[in-house]
Each structure stands twice: as structure tokens, then as C-alpha cells.
């Protein structure tokens, strides 16, 4: 086919296209996260004495940090929908990441050696990692599917940011159920769960967000 013929062909397909609506995509994905996390909390129940527990800074941080990270990562992921997006400002994620690291170190220093890893058991780790990763899968699939209409020039990065945003959103919900209030425990295992979903997002991005 000659290029001029191709132009004629493309011009024949000039039907109006629905514009890309990042805000709408955000709405759909947030709804998916709320539905999944909400259903989980309805079935499993929030922890006993949630309101009282949230008065403790270490417990509040368990919910607040993933919430803040989700709030930062979502706009970054959605910006990747357009090819002319500015590069993500990774340093924006640094404050909550540093806070999490600080919390871990604080927890490590105040607890006696016996207490530090007292909560770690095959069951508790599997519960925490397994639930966060499992609950993230559906909203992540929704987000990646929606992002296929976009045109990211860095598909793996776009997918990773999508994974990060979804995992942080789900973790926020999960933290209302979880009774592990030891920062050494939850920073480690929440962090690992979020990292796993981020990597999963990158893999999905590489596979599904190429164009």
C-alpha cells in the first residue's frame, strides 16, 4: 500500500472518537477498589475497637501511609495515559516511603529482640501478603484494561504505577481489618505485598500497554 493510499484509508475512518477521560478512569478504578475492599471488610469485619485503636499513632500510620501513597501514585499512573506526559516525579513518593522506613526503625529500636518478630508466623505472613495481593488483582485488571486506551511511552512504568496505586488503595482498606500493630511487621509485609503488586503491574503493563 502506498502511503498516500494509507492516508486515504485512515481518513475514511475519521469517525469521532470518545476522548480519553482520566478522571472517569480514576472513578471506575476507585469504585472497584472500594467494592473489593468494602466486600472484604463486610465479610471479614473490621478489627475490634477500630476507633480506639486508631488513636494510637502506630495504628493510624498503618492506614494513613498507604492512603497517602495511593493518593500520590494514582495521579502519576493516570498521567501515563498520554504519550506526552511529563516523567513521573518519583521523589514525590519519598516522604511516605521515608516515614514508613522511619516507623520500621522506631519499632525495631523500642521493641525487645523477642518482641520484634513475635508476630511473624507462616499464617500471619500468608494472610497479610496473600490477602493484599489477591484483593488487588481485580482492581488492577480493571485499571490496566482501562489504560489500554491510553498511549504510555513507557508501558512497564505505567503498569508499575498502576500496581502501586491499586495495592496502596487495597492496603488502606485491609489495614482496617489487620490487628498486627507492630510496625516491624506491617511495614515489612505490607511493603512486600505492595512491591509484589507493583511488579505484577509492570509485567502486565509490558504485556498489555504496548502500542
Amino acid at each position: 500500500m502506498k502511503t498516500d493510499d494509507l492516508i486515504g484509508l485512515l481518513a475514511a475512518d475519521a469517525a469521532p472518537q470518545a476522548p480519553l477521560r482520566p478522571v472517569r478512569i480514576a472513578g471506575v478504578v476507585l469504585a472497584a477498589i472500594l467494592a473489593v475492599a468494602g466486600l472484604f471488610l463486610m465479610l471479614a469485619g473490621v478489627r475490634e475497637g477500630l476507633a480506639a485503636a486508631l488513636q494510637q499513632p502506630a495504628v493510624l500510620a498503618k492506614t494513613a501511609l498507604p492512603l497517602v501513597l495511593a493518593g500520590l501514585a494514582f495521579p502519576m499512573a493516570l498521567a501515563q495515559l498520554r504519550p506526552d506526559a511529563v516523567r513521573p516525579r518519583w521523589w514525590g513518593l519519598l516522604p511516605p516511603a521515608m516515614a514508613a522506613a522511619g516507623l520500621w526503625l522506631w519499632g525495631f529500636s523500642v521493641l525487645s529482640p523477642a518482641e520484634r518478630f513475635a508476630d511473624v508466623s507462616a499464617f500471619s505472613v500468608t494472610e497479610c501478603l496473600g490477602l493484599i495481593v489477591t484483593l488487588s488483582i481485580l482492581p488492577l485488571a480493571v485499571l490496566i484494561a482501562k489504560m489500554r486506551r491510553g498511549a504510555s511511552v513507557a508501558p512497564a512504568r505505567a503498569g508499575a504505577l498502576a500496581g502501586l496505586a491499586v495495592a496502596c488503595g487495597i492496603t488502606t482498606g485491609y489495614s482496617l481489618f489487620c490487628t498486627q500493630d507492630n510496625p516491624v511487621f506491617y511495614v515489612t509485609w505490607y511493603g512486600l505485598a505492595i512491591l509484589l503488586v507493583t511488579v505484577l503491574g509492570a509485567v502486565l503493563g509490558l504485556r498489555f500497554l504496548r502500542w
Partner: peptide, 13 residues
């Protein structure tokens, strides 16, 4: 050209 065509909706007017 085909990429411009299939992704033209990603341009923010």
C-alpha cells in the same frame, strides 16, 4: 501514521 490514527484520542485538545 497508523499509531497516530489509533491513538489520536489520547491528545488532550
Amino acid at each position: 501514521l497508523i499509531a497516530i490514527h489509533t491513538k489520536r484520542h489520547t491528545w488532550d485538545r
